[in-house]
């Protein structure tokens, strides 16, 4: 296959940046999208041009490091991560536009690499159960209904890639935040800090400059792990009931 690639290049956070067009020859349909970029980068290196920088690590769809806004969609045309996207999803002669995630809270670092540490700070605000190592009850002491455990697992699957923010027209991080709030609100272990957690995580999410949710459902449609917006509804419930009943002023 022969493809035209329109790629966002930006030297660093301060640089203006712009699109540069490359031609990728001899692309095999069995390549993953990132392998296609690897080949392009080797060619650029041999020519003495700076290779295109992009985030990636596990390349099996679980670490959440890869990003890329491909042809107007986060992680490209399939509902998966970019590393699991294969070139058979494209056709010969196609032009592919590749952009970084765009959000105030995800500033561009270089080329297609963005800084997603805002997500870490949201988790630091309360995405945990405050138990120290040791001194915890036996694992089977509190039975948890299978349905609840499964629902918690559905939410816990989030890989923190940021596709939800990238897809949302408001750059909202509610799917991400709600997935963690939901997981811990569902489980008995999360009950003690339930109210404070919802309040603090929402406050941090706002402080990072993410947008508000307008329930378009784009996040759910693009989430590579299929995290449902029922979690957002649950977070809203958690938050509203927390603010009216908690002891936090």
């Amino acid at each position: 296959m022969k493809l035209t690639l329109k790629i966002w290049r930006q030297k660093n956070a301060a640089d203006q940046g712009g699109f540069v067009t490359y031609v990728a020859d001899h692309v095999s349909k069995d390549m993953s999208f990132l392998e296609m970029l690897d080949v392009l980068n080797d060619q650029l290196t041999e020519k003495g041009e700076d290779p295109v920088h992009f985030d990636h690590d596990c390349r099996e769809g679980i670490c959440g490091m890869c990003s890329l806004y491909i042809n107007g969609k986060p992680h490209g045309p399939q509902q998966t991560t970019t590393c699991q996207l294969h070139m058979r999803s494209f056709s010969d002669g196609e032009t592919i536009t590749i952009e970084p995630w765009r959000a105030k809270a995800f500033p561009v670092v270089k080329d297609l690499v963005v800084n997603r540490s805002a997500f870490d700070r949201i988790i630091q605000a309360g995405g945990y159960v405050s138990v120290n190592t040791g001194g915890v009850p036996d694992a089977n002491e509190i039975p948890i209904s299978k349905t609840v455990a499964d629902l918690a697992m559905d939410a816990a699957q989030c890989i923190g890639c940021g596709a939800c923010v990238a897809a949302c027209k408001n750059a909202s991080a509610m799917l991400f935040t709600s997935a963690k709030v939901s997981q811990l609100a569902l489980l008995p272990q999360g009950q003690v800090e339930r109210k404070t957690r919802a309040e603090k995580m929402v406050a941090q999410m706002d402080a990072e400059g993410f947008g508000a949710c307008t329930n378009t459902g784009a996040c759910e449609a693009e989430c590579p792990k299929g995290i449902s917006i029922t979690n957002i509804a649950r977070m809203n419930r958690e938050y509203f009931s927390a603010v009216v009943s908690s002891d936090n002023m």
Binding site: N71, K73, A105, G211, T216, G217
Partner: peptide, 28 residues
């Protein structure tokens, strides 16, 4: 308020956007 806030959450917009593939027109 919300629209302003949401606009400021993405100061640089995408060059290509394919919203119709993941959400309803009216919702956007």
């Amino acid at each position: 308020f919300l629209t302003q806030h949401n606009k400021s959450a993405r100061p640089v917009s995408y060059s290509t956007s394919n919203g119709s593939s993941n959400s309803a027109w009216s919702s956007r």
